[in-house]
Design a protein around this nucleic acid. Sequence first.
DNA 1: CTTTTGACCTGACAGC
DNA 2: TGCTGTCAGGTCAAAA
Length: 272
Amino acid sequence: MPELPEVETTCRGLQPHLTGRRIEALKVRDARLRWPVARDLPGRIAGQRIRRLRRRGKYLILELERGALIVHLGMSGALRIVPADRAPQKHDHLDWLIEGVGALRFTDPRRFGSVHFVRGEPEKHALLALLGPEPLSADFNAAGLRRASRGRRVSIKEFLMNSRIVVGVGNIYANESLFHAGIDPRTSAGRISLKRYAALVDAVRATLDAALEAGGSSLRDWLHADGGSGYFQQQYFVYARGGEACRRCAQPIREIRQGQRASFFCPVCQRR
DNA sequence: CTTTTGACCTGACAGC
DNA sequence: TGCTGTCAGGTCAAAA
């Protein structure tokens, strides 16, 4: 499912196809995404060139000549370049017709994705305005985590998945990062030392870097921009490995629920 | 303010 | 074979 590495992989895959190209039209087959696609969206963007494609958290931002598109892939969304005459399948909800390229096709079986148009600065949009730092930037650091966590009783796992704290860390990478940092996911965020936060920062970066290196994870219905699939899931240390032997100490991996999400951890390698 | 819970949606899968 | 229930994923909104 799209977490930061998958979104980044999509972004990089699409860049050469879209940068500088003109949007001829947007075909909306099904506007019922997480938020309904605005009726006037096609009219606002038709004829505009795509100046730049970038990522912020798990959002893709297509900067146009006037305004920008903010796209989220939700949990099952994918963007691919296809021939303009390729017959749409059941969950192919949107097609941007790109001059000289074909169609940028948005597929999303669960329709948790979204598309917004903004006139001005994308970062000022409500969806982006309150986002925390990028995990691969210097703004994500132990001191910042320590400060933000003071007095917070929420578990470190849920804290790490809060996009106001840091963007792009979803369930898979939160589990994996906490394993590599040796931190029990149930630990209160406010009780974690600066030193352990430093280890966590390193672990998050290393985990995301490894996933990016592998081309992003792929579970079932997520595909790269070019249609290939990633394979990072083969490297999981704890995620989806409940009951299996820890790769480091051979103890069975425990599975619990936190905030209605599955958490996996090694009771020996990860401490409170 | 923080924290928790619910909602959104579909397909895969398990169990009967 | 078909039905029912559970689960996965991300994140906003409402409730506590």
